[in-house]
Design a protein around this nucleic acid. Structure first.
Length: 188
DNA sequence: AGGATGATGGACT
DNA sequence: GTCCATCATCCTA
């Protein structure tokens, strides 16, 4: 819960990502509001990061990650799921933060109507986008604009943050750029 | 509780 | 043709 999200996201993703934990990801689609408290993120650092989609430069697919910090980058994963990132860092760097998980603050009924499975609702990047109704058509949305259908808003600071290697990668497994909010109840 | 697998689209060689 | 920043389901135990 950075004082200023725009300022935070303008910085390097491995610094901004852990501080994004606790912020809210809000979707307001078809007059249905879902609000999540972000609990799990991963940093990707463009041309400095072999695991990043932006490692080989800008392309039609990853273009929105090169836009201003706070721009939503949605990509299709394994032909089935959508995953949501926010652009970070100076324009043109291709740095970004993948939003992997969150806790539902508002709109659980909406989420349940969108998900077939009724457990494990928002604890993975594909599940999270399905729960929020985020699709490719939202690619490029300004997450910092209060008028956007998909937004990030300031939230609460987690008590503790854990960092681990990122999930599902074959490259750059050494970077501990996955960040998880730990509560007093425990972690995962 | 944990490992294997199929689904499926787009980017890239 | 191959490689995925995944998920749900179907096994074996």
């Amino acid at each position: 819960m950075p004082a200023d999200l725009a300022e935070l996201l303008a910085g390097p993703p491995e610094v901004a990502a852990p501080r994004l934990l606790g912020a809210h990801l809000v979707s307001e689609i078809d007059a249905k509001t879902v609000r999540l408290r972000i609990t799990e993120v991963e940093a990707y650092k463009g041309s400095d990061d072999p695991a990043s989609h932006a490692f080989n430069g800008r392309s039609p697919r990853n273009g929105s990650m090169f836009e201003k910090p706070g721009t939503l980058y949605v990509y299709r994963s394994y032909g089935i799921h959508n995953c949501a990132n926010t652009a970070a860092g100076p324009v043109g760097t291709g740095w970004g933060i993948l939003i992997r998980g969150g806790d539902i603050v508002e709109g659980e009924g909406i989420v349940r109507s969108r998900r077939r499975r009724q457990d494990q609702l928002t604890n993975g990047p594909g599940k999270l986008t399905e729960s929020l109704g985020i699709t490719m058509e939202h690619n490029g949305t300004d997450l910092l604009d209060p008028n956007s259908q998909i937004r990030i808003e300031p939230g609460e600071t987690p008590h503790m943050v854990l960092s681990t290697p990122r999930i599902g990668l074959s490259k750059a497994k050494d970077r501990p750029w996955r960040f998880v909010a730990a509560t007093s109840a425990g972690v995962s």
